[in-house]
Amino acid sequence: MADELLKSTNLPHDPERATLEGKNKFLGFWFFLGGETVLFASLFGTYLALKNSHLDGVPASELYGLGLVFIMTMILLTSSLTSVYAIYHMKNNDHKKMMLWLGITVLLGFSFLGLEVYEFYHYVNDYGHGFTTSAFSSAFYALVGFHGAHVAFGLGWFILLMVRNRKRGINLYNAPKFYIASLYWHFIDVVWVFIFTVVYLMGVVG
């Protein structure tokens, strides 16, 4: 029976939910994302409460550059799409193409992260907007930084999965793992949409 689990032939259409373990993982991860939603909601609340407490520092409206953030948003949205392709190929039991699209997702993720690091560097050096500058800056880095940490964790997760499964095909044992990793990636993406709106757009507008 154990062999059954690791075979890559004759996979059902939804390999991620074909076993009880897979179903459990699928469901459990959804619940986990529910908890994560509360986590980010709390951070958003904190940010909104403190966003005008910039003291002598630069206020939000003068700090953010929408151009860069827009590019970051596009990159992350695209990476969400490419992870959908990866899962699509997983369901078709096409290991090679899944790996390809996952690879692209990871690359996009890294470029997002790189831009975010550049953005933070820019704020700290050109605006004196460090983590300890004011309550506003702490709240900003806490919210956006938490998201960035999630992105980094997601990238590590994808890479680990790809390395582990590079030589073997899709099976009932690893399909749920790929699936929930991509679920996580979508979640991060959705959170970013909110960050883009609540932090950056609303920040620039007023």
């Binding site: 403190l50 407490s53 004011s134 309550a135 702490s138 709240a139 806490a142």
Partner: peptide, 23 residues
Amino acid sequence: LLTFDRLFGANFFDPSMGGNVII
């Protein structure tokens, strides 16, 4: 947030740095 305030110099709850204790 409490950890950041105490160990990493953040200002979420520090009244003198614009923090808000009610959060």
